[in-house]
Write a protein that binds this DNA or RNA. Structure first.
Length: 506
RNA sequence: GUCCUGUUAGCUCAGCUGGUAGAGCACGUCACUUUUAAUGAUGUGGCCGAUGGUUCGAAUCCAUCACAGGACACCA
């Protein structure tokens, strides 16, 4: 494993350190400040007459990123989580012999060291640490990538995220923002009186969305379980049980393709709010974005790639109207199945003629409207056929009290007034079963336990899901979901699939 | 799933219409006590993604495969 010449060389150096009585993996750290604090606290050194204060003693630690040995003195840049600091290491300030035999020969870029010293400003004007003692904490036996170009190969960056984080420190910012978004989301809903809950990740029936699940097996019970594709049906059971505002932030799993906006496991928040409707959700969503932008100190005119997204310009438009107004689809066809099919064909698009009107309207939306929705837009009033869990509109039973929020051409949230009529829900599930029989293998599963729960009465409720990964992409100006996931899903490197392995065993 | 592009030293990359494999960084040795990707000298380092084929000869041409990136398709 460690046959590489450079690694062998470094292992030898670690051995030399051991022979000199130095532990190359010491855990006796005495660090008493972070680099950021050191730089802030000592910013006044610049003003002092001799640009130094030998009475201020600090112990800092970090990984060596740059090493400039200039004979009897060296400049070293070390980095900790908070920042980068230059050290001035001179032979005569260290213990006798240490500089020549230990420091110059056996300590190198990539190693993690601890340094004692005082602040001073160099001739070039950089606040630095004047080292009077130095020890190694951790020997790195693999060399770091090239110091200037770093590591640019996306594959290596995803597979070895730790190297990416070492070499491309701006990547840390993305994940710090991600952490902030999740933390702020939690606080926002807690402050509104929502209760955070945890529902099962292993479901007997994969429900709450239309997607293919991952299957696993419970040995003791000898039953298959599905990794959840959505927590929706469990959260609504809690509303039946009397909780009036609940949310869950966690992973969903969908056994589908991977691309710039899809990872097989992804994070979402779902929240359910009794005695509210989807109209209330539109309001709380606007408030939520305002809250995020305030606390993340983001400009409301947010750049996203080539786009500028105006978060002061929330729009709201029913789906059917969006087809004509935004999508440019002629108004006389949007409610006619045959005309839609003809229109799609005319535009050279694949059409499944088995689709019902609602599904076809959804197709039109996906083709002609979605990518044009740049500023945040609530598309409302979805056809009932493509909304199996949403409440029908009281004025038009063909549409539901539902919206999806689109930003920068992507769906960010999905929300509706919940269907709480158990008989209607049963009928919708049956409709989905029929669709499944017609070959729609992503149609919703029948969940009679859930229907039974509804039969005890679920207060009128509105619920919403927000894709956290896509939201973070938007807020960090990243264009691949892999750049907002610390460890995105990757194909195995040996290239052997299960099928091939099974064949070999035979 | 389809198409396009890529895969050469630890890293970043050259390598023409086939003719003994190159640079910078890193590393080794030497010089250098205020550098900023430090500098100067010198040296080590390669299964050219894998497997086949064409050829006297393949990093280079062809085929298949693997992985990645991008686009499209599928999918929230």
């Amino acid at each position: 494993m460690f046959s590489n010449k450079f690694i062998q060389q470094r292992i030898e150096k670690a051995d030399i350190l051991r022979e000199a009585g130095i532990n190359p993996y010491s855990n006796q750290s005495k660090r008493n400040t972070t680099i950021e604090k050191f730089l802030n606290v000592n910013a006044d050194i610049e003003q002092k007459e001799d640009k130094r204060d030998a009475t201020r003693l600090y112990i800092v630690s970090g990984r060596i990123k740059f090493l400039r040995i200039m004979g009897k003195a060296s400049f070293v840049k070390i980095e900790d989580e908070s920042g980068m600091l230059q050290l001035y290491v001179a032979r005569d300030n260290l213990a006798e012999g240490f500089y020549n035999t230990i420091f110059k020969k056996n300590i190198e870029v990539g190693d993690i060291i601890e340094v004692h010293g005082y602040p001073f400003v160099t001739g070039q004007g950089e606040l630095s640490l004047h080292a009077d003692d130095l020890k190694i904490l951790t020997k790195a036996i693999s060399p770091l990538p090239e110091k200037f170009h770093g590591i640019t190969d996306k594959e290596v960056r995803y597979r070895k995220r730790y190297l990416d984080l070492i070499m491309n420190t701006e990547v840390r910012k993305t994940f710090q923002t991600r952490s902030r978004v999740i933390s702020l989301t939690r606080r926002f809903f807690e402050d509104k009186g929502f209760l955070e809950v945890e529902t099962p990740m292993m479901h007997p029936i994969a429900g709450g969305a239309n997607a293919k699940p991952f299957v696993t097996h419970h040995n003791a019970l000898d039953v298959d379980r599905y990794l959840r594709i959505a927590p929706e049906l469990y959260l609504k059971r809690l509303i039946v049980g009397g909780f009036e505002a609940v949310f869950e932030i966690n992973r969903n799993f969908r056994n589908e393709g991977m691309d710039a906006t899809h990872n097989p496991e992804f994070t979402s928040i779902e929240f359910y709010w009794a005695y509210k409707t989807y109209k209330d959700l539109i309001e709380i969503t606007k408030e939520y974005f305002q809250y995020l932008f305030e606390h993340l100190k983001l400009p409301t005119l947010l750049p996203y790639g080539e786009l500028k997204v105006n978060f002061n310009n929330f729009q709201e438009i029913p789906l059917i109207e969006s087809l004509t107004i935004i999508g440019g689809v002629p108004a006389d066809i949007v409610n006619n199945k045959a005309k839609i099919i003809a229109y799609l064909k005319e535009k050279n698009l694949d059409v499944n003629e088995k689709m019902n009107l609602g599904q076809l309207q959804g197709e039109l939306f996906d083709e002609f409207v979605e990518e044009k929705l740049i500023d945040p837009t609530f598309i409302t009033e979805y056809p009932v056929e493509i909304s199996p869990l949403a409440r029908r509109s009281d004025t038009n039973p063909e549409i539901t009290e539902r919206f999806e929020l689109f930003i920068a051409g992507r769906e960010i949230a999905n929300a509706f007034s919940e269907l709480n009529d158990p008989l209607d829900q049963l009928e919708r599930f049956e409709g989905q079963m029929a669709a499944k029989d017609c070959g729609d293998d992503e149609a919703h599963e029948m969940d009679s336990d859930f229907v039974e729960a509804l039969s005890y009465g679920m207060a009128p409720t509105a619920g919403q899901g927000i894709g956290i990964d896509r939201l973070v992409m938007l807020l960090t100006n990243e264009h691949s979901i892999r750049d907002v996931l610390l460890f995105p899903a990757m194909k195995p490197l040996n290239g052997e699939t299960c099928e091939e392995a099974a064949q070999e065993e035979e």
